[in-house]
């Protein structure tokens, strides 16, 4: 933990995660560490334009250059024209001051409501952004601080994304070709061999190579997407809602694959809205609320609400099926322990 704390200069503020049983610090540092991530979008805003106009009006009336004097009128006219021409934009913050980290060999689940901006975390780690996004914060990978271009270089070369659905495959390209990908300086024969090996490992027959994405079943598509990610031997997998639309057995198979990858020394950042699922497979859970991680804790803390610090985490705990979906106080800490004990 000593070397680890060198990396965390801001450790005193938001770095209070507890470690999972199987977690270790490879090379004394985190595989991935995101600090103070803030993402905002610049967008045109109709409501603001009206408000601004009114505010400007108010200033004009109260100011020294009253509307009755000629220079005042011209000034106001110019200002109105400028407001009219330059449609006002505002920054809409979606993610603010987010901290999360992933160690080698562990799955960290980022749990939060659907549509709350969790995907932006995946974007940030992958260095992928919409043109109107304003991003700040620090991302460390393998202990080294990254900038936009080094993150871009890590895409597919250290960090791989497992996307949500088959829509992330080119609809007009055969699956085998897509899994092999178009990496720079790739050796075709080696990549073909690697792809066949992955397909065999995940029970995809050689005929699957020749299929188009629309011909894949849900389970096949999921394995194909995982193969895409594993193609380049990543150290870290970012899985963005990888299980919706899959039945329980398939979802569990997917999670087992991630567990296997983590047990092999990789790191997994699992972004999901499904608390139960997250608890069943993850080592640590980062609770995501209103654009930030309010609590990052070992999955064991979910045995009892008393171990959870943030009220929202406790709400999540109470919302689990085995806790009656109720926001009532827990009957006994053991109830949670028996439910989660097996996986923790």
């Amino acid at each position: 933990m000593e070397g680890h704390s060198n990396v965390h200069r801001d450790g005193e503020f938001h770095h209070h995660h507890s470690h999972g049983a199987s977690t270790h610090h490879a090379g004394d540092h985190h595989l991935l560490q995101v600090e103070g991530l803030t993402v905002a979008f610049r967008m045109y805003d109709d409501a603001a334009s009206e408000g601004e106009g009114r505010r400007a009006e108010g200033e004009g009336a109260g100011g020294p250059s009253d509307g009755s004097s000629k220079p005042g009128r011209i000034a106001r006219w110019l200002r109105d024209a400028r407001l009219f021409l330059a449609a006002p934009q505002r920054e809409v913050p979606v993610v603010h001051d987010l901290h999360v980290s992933v160690h080698a060999g562990e799955i960290v689940a980022v749990v939060g409501a659907s549509g709350s901006g969790k995907t932006l975390l995946a974007d940030a780690v992958m260095g992928l952004f919409e043109p109107n996004a304003l991003v700040s914060g620090t991302v460390y990978f393998d202990g080294k601080p990254q900038d936009a271009s080094s993150l871009a270089a890590l895409r597919g070369h250290g960090i791989s994304l497992v996307p949500q659905s088959v829509a992330s495959l080119d609809p007009l390209m055969r699956v085998g070709r897509q899994v092999r990908g178009f990496a720079r300086g790739g050796d075709d024969a080696a990549r073909s061999a690697r792809q066949r090996q992955l397909f065999a490992r995940y029970g995809l027959g050689p005929e699957v190579e020749r299929l188009y994405p629309f011909e894949l079943s849900g389970g096949m598509a999921r394995r194909v997407l995982l193969c895409c990610a594993l193609m380049d031997n990543p150290k870290l997998i970012v899985a963005d809602e990888p299980t919706p639309g899959l039945d329980l057995a398939l979802a569990q198979a997917a999670l087992a694959d991630f567990r296997e990858f983590a047990d092999g020394g990789g790191g997994v950042l699992l972004i999901t809205h499904d608390v139960e699922q997250a608890l069943s497979v993850a080592d640590r859970v980062a609770v995501f609320l209103d654009g930030t991680v309010v609590e990052e804790t070992a999955v064991e803390s979910f045995r009892s609400p008393d171990l959870l610090r943030h009220p929202f985490s406790r709400q999540l705990w109470h919302a689990l099926p085995e806790h009656d979906f109720a926001a009532a106080p827990a009957r006994s800490p053991e109830a949670g322990a028996t439910a989660e004990g097996g996986q923790a």
């Binding site: 992958m126 992928l128 270089a153 895409r155 597919g156 070369h157 791989s160 994304l161 996307p163 659905s165 829509a167 992330s168 495959l169 080119d170 609809p171 990908g181 178009f182 990496a183 720079r184 895409c228 193609m231 380049d232």
Partner: peptide, 17 residues
């Protein structure tokens, strides 16, 4: 703007590719 282009980028493909 499609998901498959986003994914291709996430796998390290350049814009030209």
């Amino acid at each position: 703007g499609s998901p498959y282009v986003r994914f291709a980028r996430a796998r390290g493909e350049s814009t030209g590719s």
